[in-house]
């Protein structure tokens, strides 16, 4: 017998008819299951929200007053005819893949994910399923991430050199996830760690939840190169080279993102240094994750969808591009977004 698909792709987002809910919808719906707090996944205006306990504080911080319920990783919840559970996606603290089971048919919407343990987010957990929805932000074989320790060493070496040259190191990173991951990689003995307000606010939310971050100082109007010599300042990319950064005197700027893997982008966007580090899976990571699910049907979204699904189809999967009216976190779009890389 032929099953109705458990999840379908509608103009409002990924829809589950059996449970009458949406996953990461981009239009107002009554019931929304949210993989994580990034702006292209968690939008305002939904009737009810369901997300992991760890994702909720950041969502509330960003979206304000919302009607939301929390759920633990692995906890099973029946919604109508569907059994739903959330599992670690390793993308940012609190991020989840959403597993939906209806009459023995298992679908997993993985949201954004990475497969290495960043020491902060609950590590990615492959889920056996029949249908797997995957992102493909970095779905090209040119993207290959180095181990986190290697990038940590590069960043700390750069910071140390800046400090000994009497310069402030200003590191650009997106405020939820990437910034905290970088903070946890810094070697505090080199000097003081300052954070831009946007980042310090998110830090406070995560610290409240018990995430261990090194001591940071809010880079308020009194903080300058004089008050904090040898400092590293972590700031949103938009703050790099802005009037705000001037007060840190002689400085070098760095930018941490997966896009830095490409020399052209690095030269255009990185300021003085580009560090290749991403909260999305690289080529090998995507393929590993897909293999681990044992799924035969793969739905590709967010990124190099056409190329990645063609590759999957040639290698024995039944892959298709998820039609979406929204562009994913493309190289160019990432300029303005707070969540790419």
């Amino acid at each position: 017998m032929r099953h109705e698909p458990v999840l379908t792709f509608t103009p409002k987002g990924i829809y589950c008819a059996a449970g009458d809910f949406y996953i990461d919808p981009w239009q107002r719906v009554d019931r929304a299951l949210i993989t994580h707090g990034h702006a292209d996944h968690a939008r305002g205006g939904m009737g009810r929200y369901l997300a992991t306990h760890d994702a909720l504080p950041v969502m509330r911080h960003r979206l304000g007053e919302i009607n939301a319920e929390g759920i633990a990783y692995g906890e099973r919840l029946t919604i109508g005819g569907a059994v739903v559970s959330f599992h670690p996606a390793g993308h940012v603290p609190g991020s989840a893949q959403i597993r939906v089971e209806v009459a023995g048919q298992i679908w997993v919407a993985s949201g954004d994910y990475k497969v290495i343990d960043d020491g902060l987010s609950a590590p990615f957990e492959p889920l056996p399923c029949h249908h797997f929805i995957t992102e493909s932000t970095f779905g090209l074989p040119v993207f290959r991430w180095e181990p986190q320790e290697t990038v940590a060493r590069q960043i700390n070496d750069w910071w140390r050199t800046c400090a000994s040259d009497g310069k402030t190191a200003i590191l650009g990173a997106y405020s939820l996830g990437k910034a905290q991951r970088l903070l946890s990689m810094l070697a505090p003995e080199i000097g003081p760690i300052l954070c831009h307000t946007a980042i310090e606010n998110t830090n406070a939310v995560l610290r409240d939840q018990g995430f261990a971050l090194p001591d940071t100082i809010l880079a308020d109007k009194d903080a300058t190169a004089k008050t904090h010599p040898g400092a590293i300042v972590v700031a949103p990319p938009s703050a790099l080279g802005s009037a705000w950064s001037k007060k840190f005197g002689r400085q070098e700027s760095g930018f941490a993102s997966g896009w830095m893997a490409m020399r052209g982008v690095r030269r255009r966007r990185a300021g003085d240094r580009g560090f290749i580090i991403s909260d999305h899976a690289d080529w090998a990571g995507l393929l590993w994750a897909i293999r681990e699910t044992k799924a035969e049907n793969i739905y590709v979204t967010h990124g190099y969808t056409e190329i990645f699904s063609r590759y999957l189809n040639e290698n024995g999967w039944n892959a298709q591009v998820v039609p979406t009216q929204f562009e994913g976190e493309s190289l160019e779009a990432s300029d303005e977004r707070d969540n790419a890389a």
């Binding site: 090209l140 040119v142 052209g264 190099y304 063609r310 590759y311 040639e314």
Partner: peptide, 14 residues
């Protein structure tokens, strides 16, 4: 496969 390489080339640009 070669086609995949050829897809990457214009994106990287070099």
């Amino acid at each position: 496969p070669l086609w995949l390489f050829e897809e990457c080339y214009p994106i990287v640009g070099d």
